[in-house]
Design a protein around this nucleic acid. Sequence first.
DNA 1: AAGATTACCTGAAGGC
DNA 2: TGCCTTCAGGTAATCT
Length: 275
Amino acid sequence: MPELPEVQTIVSDLNEMVSRRVISEVAVRLPKMMGGDADPFLALLPGAQIEEVIRLGKWVCFKLDRNKLTLVVHLRMTGQFELGPWPETDHWPLHCHVALRLNGFPPDQEALLYRDIRQFGRWFLLDPTELNIHLKKLGPDSLLISPEEFHTRLTKKKSSLKSVLLDQSVIAGLGNIYVDESLFAARLSPTRSAASLVKEETDRLLAEIKRLLTASIATRGSTTSNYKGLKGPGSFQHQHQVYRHSGQPCPACGAQLERSVVAGRTTTFCPDCQR
DNA sequence: AAGATTACCTGAAGGC
DNA sequence: TGCCTTCAGGTAATCT
């Protein structure tokens, strides 16, 4: 479940480990990852140098030195990167679907492997025009948005806070974990209409969002099932107050935390603290 | 426009 | 032991 802190951890690891490397070979075992057509990747990636790796919302973006192209990967639920040996045909590691061979590594680390158990991830190879079209679907980053813009964007929406915060076109980077944790920390009900919030409340919510995301990045994100960065799992799950804690006492008031479905997502909250 | 529903997938967990 | 169902939760597509 990579959300902003997890994607940021992966991007930081990648930027440190594979930027400046040249891709010498590409292998794709599941072209579905590329929307069914791996040919552009096979044709354009070999020989390209990775200039840097950046995060845009939950997207991992490899900036390439060729034709101003960007390799964009969305990990969705279970996408992972790891370094390993180049996979021989018919002997790919379990759930590995794409491999990039990189120069300058020892043989047991020369492949950047993409694993994705549920196969929901997607790869794109975009020129600047196409990247702009993609970017238009993303709201401002959760770590960068100003309190004023956050207030303006939220209060334009009549639907529940939960669904608005999960909407990547409103604000980019949040997912189920950090929405539940942020709403609890800000003492706001997930079912409140976003339009009903006053400035003091949106200020408080944004401050908690940024505090939690920053604290999570500092511990390499939350590993609740199978997320891991290139250098191992994160540990922010130990600081979760409500996510997957339904039935347990509220850390603030002791009432039993409730679980329900809001905006189609499992949601855990304190019925007494969150208004 | 917003809500609900379904689809995409595999694996873990729980019931019997 | 094993079969079955449910759940995990990011996003797009479809329908009301």
